[in-house]
């Protein structure tokens, strides 16, 4: 048996990584298509604020982070729906105000910088069995939501006004997506950390979109890239003693470059791709 599979903590890490690698692109696809990629980054900083509040008050930081990320997701959807505010402005406001709160709390209450570091950069090697169960449960919820509402989600990302006139409840669909995104980001923080969690939602999707046509096909390839990045990245990190989160994200970036290179060659061979 290879060395990496001889440790329980690595098996848990690989399982958690694979789930996170699959979940990221499933949610991320619709966020990318809505040009809302940075919602992932924003919600991860909202979750960080939750962690800071949790650590400062002694309440379980992950729980507070989960509540904060859900509240953040609802706030963002409310502010940006029906053009109350432009999407990027909404994200900027929520990101910086929650980050500021986090920084103020952290600077005010010294003494938990070690715990905080594990949230900032991830600590996949300390994934517990409970974490794994939570991730698996969330994974099932996300898969069910996305497959059941696939048409609604696709339409809402293609053209929200057109979707509404087709009978899709765009506001509710996007709200569900945002809440699941908040939950996924909170639980994924353990694996790659606050700073990099957004990458898992965005980069595999971009790679998938370069490789195949069709929403379902792009989703499938995105998930494959996400899972492969997690497993390869973790393995490399284990043997070379590197940061797991960094290695996972760098692996997905390599996939993206390869996909882009392939797409350029493919499109060059085709005499005309547009008219």
């Amino acid at each position: 048996m290879p060395l990496i599979l001889q440790f329980d903590f690595m098996i848990r890490a690989l399982a958690a990584g694979a789930i996170v690698g699959a979940l990221g692109p499933v949610l991320g696809m619709f966020l990318v298509l809505r040009r809302f990629s940075l919602i992932a980054d924003t919600l991860s900083h909202v979750a960080l604020m939750g962690v800071a509040i949790g650590l400062a008050t002694g309440v379980h930081p992950s729980l507070v982070a989960l509540a904060a990320a859900s509240a953040g997701a609802i706030t963002i959807e409310y502010l940006s729906s029906r053009q109350r505010l432009p999407g990027d402005v909404t994200l900027a406001i929520v990101l910086y105000s929650s980050l500021a709160v986090a920084v103020v709390i952290i600077s005010g209450a010294r003494g938990f910088s070690v715990d905080l570091f594990s949230f900032l950069f991830g600590s996949i090697l300390s994934v517990s069995e409970l974490d794994l169960f939570l991730l698996a449960g969330l994974g099932i919820a996300v898969l069910v939501y996305v497959t059941v509402f696939f048409s609604e989600l696709s339409q809402a990302s293609f053209d929200p006004a057109l979707a509404r006139v087709t009978g899709v409840r765009v506001g509710w669909i996007n709200l569900g997506l945002a809440i699941l995104t908040g939950a996924t980001i909170t639980l994924s923080m353990r694996v790659v950390g606050v700073l990099l969690v957004g990458a898992l939602l965005v980069i595999p999707v971009l790679a998938g979109e370069r490789l195949v046509s069709g929403l379902r096909a792009a989703l499938g390839v995105g998930v494959a890239v996400g899972v492969a990045s997690a497993i390869i990245g973790l393995t490399v990190a284990f043997y070379k003693d590197l940061s797991a989160g960094g290695a996972i994200v760098l692996t997905s970036v390599v996939f993206l470059f390869v996909a882009q290179g392939y797409a350029v060659l493919r499109d060059r061979r085709r005499p005309f791709s547009t008219e």
């Binding site: 339409q155 293609f158 979707a163 087709t166 009978g167 979109e209 069709g214 096909a217 792009a218």
Partner: peptide, 13 residues
């Protein structure tokens, strides 16, 4: 990334 057929299928929602 949607194909033409996928977009048109949305119309039968």
């Amino acid at each position: 990334p949607a194909t033409v057929a996928e977009i048109v299928a949305h119309g039968s929602y």
